[in-house]
Design a protein around this nucleic acid. Structure first.
Lengths: 347, 347
DNA sequence: ATGAAAGCGCTAACAG
DNA sequence: CTGTTAGCGCTTTCAT
């Protein structure tokens, strides 16, 4: 009943040829005569022959599938990267298998194992926030399976088949904070992310350096280490407003937390940007739709996905790993533009 | 150099056993003696043995991979469904392979072919908006490959291995429009989606029926067939406001278009909801963050994904197809709540 | 230009 | 309880 699919053997016997010849004909092998080639292709067409990719993969020892491992698919960033990945992959004739670690290191390990046995031609990975143990990635490295980290990479893990595509988080934060200073802000708070993820550490460092370069002091009480969700940002904002000397601007390491802060400010009657100016990071879809719209740093997420695939394909062919750093772009919107201040697009 | 991976044969020869015994021991087959089982498992552990899933799939004739085909991964809806799918699938020991049709019927056909040869244990599909020819799905049906449509289904395509999970779009639209009527709106416009997709047709019908049941006339000039993006909604809104007798409410078939409409209204100085009340469909993340927040219909997207996987697993085991219809939920927010009107949550 | 044979890694039927 | 054999569908020597 399950409508058995036609195999090379079927075609061979119908045409009284050997499987090898049929295989060759299908592969446009020049050894095979023009006439047989046509006969084979004709019949294959008629019977609706489709190669069994599993058998092909087993025989060849590798597949044309790329494995993708992301922390989650919520929000806008990762879906956009994945979109870029699937687009570039399918253009190059690869398909894509996606797993989510759900920010859990153990789940990440399992998925990694799964993908390695899938098997895939290579891996595109963005780390879970809870990952502390890099042993599973060592295993990928020793298996010589090409690996590209995107956005969240392991600093220091290098190998002959390990590339990375990240944005310059440091520069993005620096640009945003410099912009806030130029708008006249002097007490700039920072909603910081988990520091063991390099991206958040870099954003923190960019914040720090920008303050320093503009002659402003770094005040630890203005730096709140928080989760990345809306309520986290709201709670942090409330605390900041309790300070004897509250901030006149907030630079958040993520947009969701920032929108939480915005809501608290509006609720308590503060004016944005005049009392408190706001800038975030990621260019989430909703940042353009809040009131006021939020200044944020765009990460070129779609392009990051495409670039990650390019890196992978490059390694597949020439085995030269690279570390690509994309330059982020500051999007200045009303949440940080004070009247009477010059507009500036860079830091 | 590529650090050859250890196979069952390797373990067998090191232990002077046959591959079959090793295979059995690994599979906890009760036939094998306790001692050998332990020896095998011990060595497998030490050598870091991992089964080659491709070989397993080839041998068994099927894999533990589910194929997912979505129109796109932009916005919030499909990522949320996919999130539900991967969650439920991985709990059931399946992994997930995701393809995007990019709303293109030809791409959809290719991806379908790809997934069928992957091979997958079953398919979870949401149609591209341009799909008119259902032949590729006939092929899936005759291959007896379990198929679950979610959200965008082919009405009338039934089979022994075809299920569907959709929400009651008709009811969702009916609820939203009834709510607008209860808020005192009398000239309710509709931003309609592509009518050949059943979901949009149903939303349109729900709109029509709600008007009728409340004794309001259906006015064709208030129904705008548009694309689903923000500028489409903005353009439609401008047109509607040109009418001799403009609408006092808008029910949009999607949230992005609605936010476009909202922006035009604010730009031109209309008050929402007092001059024009708004309601949308999908509960996109940003609808809670606009000013005012947008009333919308929640589609239980995450649950839809989980449910789709359940349907698929059910067919894998018992072969009984089902058509699940989830009940949507109207989320009343400020964009439709007029002061002095009673609040109502259902229609 | 074509065929025969071997084998990718695994499992299941069939001995013993 | 364990081993032998065969084969999933395909590709690729090696013959002819």
């Amino acid at each position: 009943m399950p409508a058995r699919r036609v195999s090379i053997g079927d075609i061979a016997s119908q045409l009284k040829l050997s499987p090898s010849t049929v295989s060759r004909a299908l592969a446009h092998n020049p050894d095979v005569s023009e006439t047989t080639r046509q006969r084979v292709q004709q019949l294959a067409q008629e019977l609706g022959y489709q190669p069994n990719q599993v058998a092909v993969a087993l025989r060849r020892g590798h597949s044309n599938t790329l494995g993708v491992l992301v922390p989650h698919l919520a929000g806008t960033f990762f879906p956009e990267v994945v979109d870029g990945i699937t687009e570039a992959a399918s253009q190059a004739g690869y398909n894509v298998m996606i797993c989510q670690s759900r920010e859990d290191a153990e789940q990440e390990r399992k998925n990694l194992e799964l993908l390695m046995n899938a098997p895939v031609a290579g891996l595109l990975v963005s780390l879970a926030s809870s990952t502390q143990n890099y042993a599973p990635f060592e295993a990928v490295r020793t298996a010589n399976l090409p690996l590209v980290f995107f956005d969240r990479a392991i600093e220091g893990l290098t190998g002959e088949h390990i590339s990375s595509v990240v944005i310059d988080d440091y520069a993005g934060a620096y640009m945003a904070v410099s912009h806030l200073v130029e708008q006249g802000c002097r007490r700039i708070a920072h909603l910081a992310g988990p520091p063991h993820l390099a991206i958040y550490e870099q954003r923190h460092r960019g914040y720090e350096q920008a303050l320093h370069d503009h002659g402003l002091p770094y005040r630890p009480e203005l730096v709140c280490p928080i989760g990345q969700h809306q309520p986290d940002g709201a709670a942090a904002m409330r605390q900041l407003l309790q300070l004897p000397c509250p901030p006149d601007a907030v630079f958040s390491s993520g947009d969701s937390a920032l929108v939480g802060a915005l809501q608290v400010l509006k609720e308590l009657g503060y004016r944005v940007p005049d009392d408190v100016a706001l800038a975030g990071f990621s260019n989430a879809e909703f940042t353009a739709l809040t009131e006021p719209p939020l200044t944020t740093v765009d990460q070129h997420s779609h392009q990051m996905g495409r670039e990650a695939v390019n890196q992978l394909l490059r390694m597949l062919h020439t085995a030269t790993p690279t570390a690509v750093v994309l330059r982020p772009q500051l999007l200045v919107r009303a949440s940080s533009q004070r009247v009477g201040q010059q507009q500036s697009l860079a830091g």
